[in-house]
Design a binder for these strands. Structure first.
Ligand code: FES
Ligand code: FES
Lengths: 142, 142
DNA sequence: TTTAATTGATACCAATATAGTATCAGTTAA
DNA sequence: TTAACTGATACTATATTGGTATCAATTAAA
């Protein structure tokens, strides 16, 4: 069971690259080569993130992509939702036969509780936090 | 993003059916019809659960499947691992370029922390617990 | 003003995972 | 002897994921 797919994985890495150079326009090509992400795949992800107002773009020579939203406000939960759809444990376990009362269903409550725990854990992890972790890790090893 | 696939969903339901009639052999056919699970699909899941010593079977007429392991010892985590593979957030985010030091990688720590949170949440949910929830829910509604 | 570097948009393809079906041999209670 | 069962395994269909290709539009710079 994979929690993060390539979409999300690559998107996080691209955002880290942009966050590290906030205010500058960085081309998709340079991000792709520097971070070992398939170019056309990355392009699609970047366009999707524009639609969600995480980043902005500039066309033409010297163009590229730039961080728009505050990195500390971009959570992994948000990225998962964009690229993998909303986290849901199960559409609705135990339909029909077993579970007659959807509203009061104890199982459903159990499931929803877990859903919210998972989500809140991923919400604690923001691009901003990851970037700081990354930078301090690099200092140690250099 | 779906956390539980049909495999796991059906397996849980089948186990609940068996746990509710502990000590008896129940045929795959009756479980399938009563709980609206595709018969051949269910058969495969049951065989897989035999291999993992969750249940046992008896061949021939009046045969079927019976709970083997204590329902309170069967966690949703275990079922996810059987049917969807071990929970892993990402194979290894930020390989190569960014992350030179696998052992000390802060990002990796962050990811592993979340992994363990997710796992421990699902470990709290056992077949035994679900069954009791289910039974008390049924009492209320009847 | 031409050109090369760029994004926008979109269609396509390949690989893998998920969901479901079919078949036939072997076992066993009735 | 037979019908109700499981064991084993192969097959198919569909969806998701991962990746590639193409071409038009834009723009800084030569
Ligand atoms: S599990 Fe869906 S309503 Fe109870
Ligand atoms: S993310 Fe894999 S070692 Fe750092």
């Amino acid at each position: 069971m994979k929690v993060l797919t390539k979409n999300t994985d690559y998107a996080i890495r691209a955002l880290l690259a942009l966050a590290a150079k906030k205010g500058c326009f960085i081309s998709a090509k340079s991000i792709a080569t520097e971070h070992d992400i398939p170019y056309q795949f990355l392009r699609r992800l970047l366009q999707e993130m524009i639609r969600h107002n995480l980043i902005v773009s500039k066309e033409g020579v010297q163009g590229g992509f730039m961080m728009e939203k505050d990195p500390d406000e971009i959570t992994v939960t948000e990225l998962i939702e964009i690229f993998q759809g909303k986290v849901q444990v199960s559409e609705c376990m135990f339909r029909k036969q077993i579970c007659g009362n959807r509203a009061r269903c104890v199982l459903r409550h159990e499931i929803m509780r877990i859903e919210s725990v998972v989500q809140s854990e991923f919400e604690k992890v923001t691009i901003g936090k990851l970037l700081r972790d990354l930078e301090s890790a690099n200092q140690v090893t250099q």
